[in-house]
Amino acid sequence: MSTYYASLLAESGILLLGALSVYIILATGQLSLGNGAFMGIGAYLSSYLTVALNVPLTLALVISAIAAGIIGAIVAFPALRLKGIYLAMATVGFGEMVRSFFLNFDAMGGSGGYRGMQHISVGYVWLWAGGILIAVMLLERSRVWLEMQAVHDDETAAGLIGLNTTVTKIGAFGVGAAVAAISGGLFAHHNVYIEPANFGFDRSIEFVLAVILGGSTVGPGSLVGSLLLVFLPEFLRPIADWRLAAFGTLLIVVLLVRRQGILDRSLIRTLTFRRAAA
C-alpha cells in the first residue's frame, strides 16, 4: 500500500470517528453542528499531554476523551432547553467559541498552530476507529439505544412512559464529545501539526455530511459516508475542481430520494441475506 493511500485510509478512519460522534448525538434527536470543537479539544489536549508531558499516546487519548466527555455533558445541560434548529445554532456558536479560544491560546501556538507530535500509523488509527465502530454497533442492540431512539422519536412520550430523557440526552452528548475527541487526538498525531482552523465549522459540517450521506439510522452508515467522502474524490480526479459541488449535489439528492442515507436497516438485511443465501 502506498503512503498516499495509507494516508487516505487514516483520514477516513479519523472522519469515521467524527461521524460516529455526530451519529450518537443524532440518535437522540439532537443535531450538533459543533463537534469540530470537541475534536479540537481532543487534538489540543492529547498533543499537549504527549508533547509537553510525555504521556503515552493511548493514555493521552483516553484522558482527552474523558475530559471532552465531561465538557460535552456540561455543554449539553443548558442545551436541554433547546430543540431542533435552535440547538443546532447554539452548537454552531459553541464551535466558533472554542475555535476562537484556541486562536487566542498562545500557550499552544495560537493561530500559529502546534507541532511536535509523534506520527502514528494507519493501523493504530483503525484500531481505534474499528474498535469504536464495533462498540457502537453493539450499543445499537442495547436497552440504552432503545431509550435513545424513544427520545429521538417522541421525547415527550418517552418521558411519560418512564424514561429519564435528561440523562439520555446528556449522556449521548458526553459520549459523542468523547468520540470526537479521540478523532481529534488521532488527527493531531497523524497530521503532526494542528491549528485552530482544522476544527471550525467546516469540520463539523464534514462529520454531519458523512453521517447523512452514509446513513443516519445505522452505525455502519458512518463508515460508508466516511469512506465515500475520502475516497470518492479519487474517482472524481477528472473533475477535481468540482468535487465539493459533487458532494453538495449528492447531499441534496440523498435528502430528496433517500432521506435516511445510503445504508439503512433494510439494505443491511438485504445484503447480509444475499450473502448467506449464496
Partner: peptide, 17 residues
C-alpha cells in the same frame, strides 16, 4: 404515541423498569 422507528418487540422492551 408510538415510536416511529421501533418494532412491536422494541416497544415492549423500551418501557420496562
Amino acid at each position: 404515541r408510538l415510536f416511529g422507528s421501533m418494532t412491536v418487540w422494541e416497544h415492549l422492551l423500551v418501557a420496562q423498569p
